[in-house]
Amino acid sequence: MDLPITSLLAGIFTLLMVPLSLQISISRAKIGGFSGGLTFGDGGDETLRRKIRAHGNFIEYAPMALIALGLVEYDGGEKTLVLGLASAFLISRLLHAGGMLYTSTPFIRGIGMLIQHVAFVIVGGWLVLQVAA
Rank of each mutant, 00 (worst) to 15 (best):
D2G: 05
L3Y: 04
L3F: 03
L9Q: 05
A10S: 12
A10D: 02
I12A: 08
I12G: 05
F13M: 03
T14K: 05
L15R: 03
L15M: 12
L16V: 09
V18H: 10
V18I: 15
P19G: 06
L22T: 06
L22W: 13
I24C: 10
S25Y: 07
I26A: 06
I26N: 07
S27M: 14
R28E: 08
G32M: 15
G33I: 14
G36D: 08
G37C: 07
L38F: 09
F40V: 11
G43F: 10
G43S: 08
E46T: 13
E46F: 14
E46R: 14
E46I: 15
L48F: 08
L48Y: 08
R50D: 11
K51M: 13
I52V: 04
H55Y: 15
N57R: 04
N57F: 11
F58G: 02
Y61V: 11
Y61W: 13
A62N: 12
P63D: 05
P63R: 02
P63Q: 01
L66N: 11
I67F: 14
A68G: 05
A68K: 07
L69P: 02
L71W: 02
E73M: 13
E73H: 14
Y74R: 03
Y74K: 04
Y74N: 04
D75G: 11
D75P: 00
G76W: 05
G77L: 09
K79A: 10
G84Y: 08
A86E: 04
A86M: 03
A88E: 00
A88L: 00
I91V: 15
S92Q: 01
H96W: 01
G99A: 06
M100R: 01
L101N: 09
S104P: 04
T105E: 13
P106H: 09
F107G: 00
G110T: 13
I111S: 00
G112N: 01
M113Y: 01
L114C: 01
I115P: 00
H117T: 15
V118L: 15
V118W: 01
V118C: 08
A119P: 07
F120P: 13
F120L: 14
V121N: 05
W126F: 15
L127K: 11
L129Q: 12
L129N: 14
V131K: 11
A132E: 12
A133F: 11
